[in-house]
């Protein structure tokens, strides 16, 4: 695995929140590398700091200590403006609750993301790829949860980002739909050669990952390389 190219380097990242007089540590001295083309699953119960980590990797939040280096550039000392550009060009987000714009159609939601990117993919092709070619002119309210999440994935992928960050992508979906979404993410990982990080509390999902990182109380407690990841269709929960 070390022979692979490092996409992102996380060094000694901590995050503290001031809650009145008490300081709460959401992340404690976390270090890890993310490699190009990897499919990583970060596992942990709620409050383990995985969302905080994801937000920091995605440039939505800054750590209290430590640094994050993406493709050789330290993003943790970026200005607001540079962070915005970083999110725009390098990162694709998939949220648990899809977070689509309710008053834009599926294709418009994707275009909302691509029209500010310099190197976007063809929006129609991406929607086709997630199986929504026929439904692209529907509004979110006219779509099922799975379809909405696929729009959300298309929105993230079409930006042609270096890194796809997925926050509990199956959390709001039923089992069958969840599996389909995971297959989509796996396909994108393979076909478009995109690095994918999924955070979830759902243990079985770890089986499809190249690497599983387990977190608890703001710390990495275990990193497991999976030499034979199973296809998502084989997962059960």
């Amino acid at each position: 695995m070390d022979s692979k190219e490092v996409l992102m380097k996380v060094e000694g990242v901590s995050k503290f929140y001031q809650m009145g007089e008490v300081t709460v540590a959401a992340l404690k001295d976390v270090s890890l590398n993310i490699y190009q083309g990897e499919f990583v699953v970060i596992l942990g119960p709620s409050g383990s700091g995985k969302s905080t980590l994801l937000n920091i990797l995605g440039g939505m939040d800054l750590p209290s200590e430590g640094k994050v280096v993406m493709e050789g550039e330290e993003i943790t000392n970026y200005s607001d403006r540079k962070l915005t550009i970083y999110r725009r060009e390098k990162i694709g987000f998939v949220f648990q609750f899809y977070n689509l714009m309710s008053n834009l159609t599926a294709i418009e939601n994707v275009e909302l993301a691509t029209e500010i990117c310099s190197d976007a993919l063809n929006v129609n092709e991406v929607l086709e790829a997630v199986g929504l070619g026929e439904r692209k002119d529907h509004f979110p309210a006219q779509m099922s949860g799975g379809e909405q999440q696929r729009v959300s994935i298309a929105r993230a992928v079409a930006k042609n980002p270096s890194l796809l960050l997925c926050d509990e992508p199956t959390g709001a979906l039923d089992f069958n739909t969840g599996i389909k979404i995971l297959s989509q993410l796996k396909r994108i990982n393979k076909e478009y050669n995109k690095t994918v990080i999924i955070i979830t509390h759902n243990m079985p999902i770890g089986a499809m990952a190249d690497r599983v990182i387990k977190m608890r109380s703001g710390e990495i407690i275990e990193t497991k390389v999976n030499d034979n990841p199973i296809p998502p269709e084989g997962i059960e929960w």
Partner: peptide
């Protein structure tokens, strides 16, 4: 929605 816009890279 504003959060999403910001996450997508809108300034």
């Amino acid at each position: 929605s504003i959060g999403v816009m910001k996450a997508l890279g809108y300034n």
